[in-house]
Structures are given as structure tokens and as C-alpha cells.
Amino acid sequence: MSRRANLSRDAILDRAIPLFAESGYNGVSMRDIARSCGQSSASLYHHFPDKQALYLAAMKQAFADRTAQLLTLLREDGPADRRLRNLVETLCRQLTEDRTFQRLLQRELLDGDRQRLQLTAESVFSEVTRELQRLCRELAPQFDPFLLAGSIIGLVMQHFQNAGLRRFLPGYQPQHDNPVVIAEHIVALLPGGNQ
């Protein structure tokens, strides 16, 4: 691609997302992103004032479709246990089918940068978290909805964070990699999941 043909903001983000997923925020420079885009670093600054703004936009774009899908499931009419099952199964499928999504999430948690975590929480995950807490209040009003929502996400994430190791542990069976099997197991453990 010619350096003169400037890429759109979305095209830059599409190229930056896998770089951030692979190497993390600190492992990718604006120069790396520009090189991947076939652009000059200056052309990136036309769309983004700095690396942090580009990163946050990349996170929003990477998670936009997934969070929209989760919000749709959480806001459906119908029994809370069905919405829980659909949510957990969808999240398991998303993590299985999209390694970039999974890696971005893991990288951000591992990096642990307080400011980026706060920005990501506020701009990417807050709406889904609020809706998940609302579902938790419906399912199990006796539990703290914040802690229960965190436990649901934690149960799901754990299965994908240790996927490489899991295959070598005693008791492993190939069906343990199936997102539907994982989702059914998680839902069965949760309050209101067996209604």
C-alpha cells in the first residue's frame, strides 16, 4: 500500500488490534502500528492524539460487537435462568472463536496499568457489568450482585486462560474444550442456573 493512501481510522484500528493482543500495550509502538499499516507515524496522529487514545479506540472496536451481543442477551425478555445460560454460552463461544478477543482481555489484565484499566472498565465493560448485575439480582437476590457477576466472568475466563495447560492435567477429556460443555458446567454451578 502506498504511504500516500491514508487508511481510515477503522482500518488502522483493525491492524492495531492484533498487535496489541499479541504484544500488549507496552510491546507495541506507534511506529510498529504505522509500519503494519504502511503509513507514517505522523498519519496515525491525524486520527489519534497519542498511543493511549489509539489503544482505547482499539479496545472499544475489538469489544464492540461482542459487548453488543452480550447486552442483547442480557436485556431479552424471558426467564433469568435462560438469559444466564445464553450469556455464558455466548461468552464461551466468543472466547473460543476469537483468540484476539481473548488475548486482548488477558493482556490488559496482566499489564495492570491502573489508568488504562479504569478507562477500559468505564468505556468498554461498564454497561455489560451493570446489566449482568441486574440479572444477578433477579437470579439470586441473597448474593452481592457485584461479586456474583465477577464470579460468573471469572468462572468463564478461567477455562480459557488455562486452556493450554488443561490438556496435560489428569482427568482431561477432549470435550472439556467444547464451549457448550464448559457453559453447561458453569451454569450448573451458579445460583438460579438449574431452575
Results as ranks from 00 to 15, higher is better:
residue 50 D to A: 15
residue 131 E to M: 09
residue 145 P to H: 06
residue 170 P to I: 08
residue 47 H to F: 10
residue 120 T to W: 02
residue 163 A to P: 01
residue 71 L to I: 03
residue 89 E to I: 01
residue 10 D to Y: 04
residue 160 F to A: 06
residue 194 N to K: 03
residue 105 L to Y: 09
residue 72 T to P: 01
residue 108 E to F: 04
residue 149 A to F: 10
residue 173 Q to W: 13
residue 56 L to F: 06
residue 115 Q to L: 07
residue 21 A to V: 11
residue 146 F to R: 13
residue 12 I to Q: 03
residue 175 Q to A: 12
residue 141 P to W: 10
residue 137 R to A: 07
residue 189 L to W: 06
residue 13 L to A: 02
residue 189 L to Y: 03
residue 147 L to F: 13
residue 188 A to E: 06
residue 14 D to F: 03
residue 11 A to G: 05
residue 26 N to P: 00
residue 61 Q to I: 04
residue 16 A to V: 07
residue 40 S to Q: 13
residue 88 V to W: 00
residue 27 G to F: 11
residue 11 A to C: 01
residue 15 R to Q: 09
residue 194 N to G: 00
residue 162 N to W: 13
residue 106 Q to W: 02
residue 59 M to R: 14
residue 83 R to M: 07
residue 55 Y to A: 13
residue 81 D to N: 12
residue 41 S to L: 03
residue 151 S to K: 08
residue 135 L to K: 05
residue 67 T to I: 15
residue 112 G to F: 14
residue 102 Q to A: 08
residue 2 S to N: 14
residue 190 L to K: 02
residue 194 N to I: 02
residue 182 I to S: 02
residue 83 R to S: 03
residue 66 R to L: 02
residue 168 F to P: 01
residue 10 D to V: 10
residue 147 L to C: 06
residue 155 L to Y: 13
residue 133 Q to G: 04
residue 118 Q to C: 07
residue 129 T to M: 12
residue 104 L to D: 03
residue 140 A to P: 01
residue 119 L to M: 10
residue 160 F to C: 10
residue 76 E to N: 12
residue 77 D to V: 11
residue 71 L to C: 10
residue 48 F to D: 09
residue 106 Q to G: 06
residue 83 R to Q: 05
residue 102 Q to M: 08
residue 115 Q to I: 08
residue 21 A to P: 01
residue 92 C to D: 00
residue 177 D to W: 11
residue 9 R to Q: 11
residue 5 A to Q: 13
residue 44 L to F: 10
residue 167 R to V: 15
residue 175 Q to D: 12
residue 40 S to M: 09
residue 190 L to R: 08
residue 110 L to V: 13
residue 53 A to C: 11
residue 38 G to E: 02
residue 105 L to S: 04
residue 71 L to R: 04
residue 8 S to Y: 13
residue 5 A to F: 14
residue 164 G to L: 14
residue 166 R to N: 04
residue 152 I to N: 04
residue 180 V to T: 15
residue 24 G to C: 12
residue 32 D to M: 02
residue 107 R to I: 10
residue 183 A to K: 01
residue 60 K to H: 09
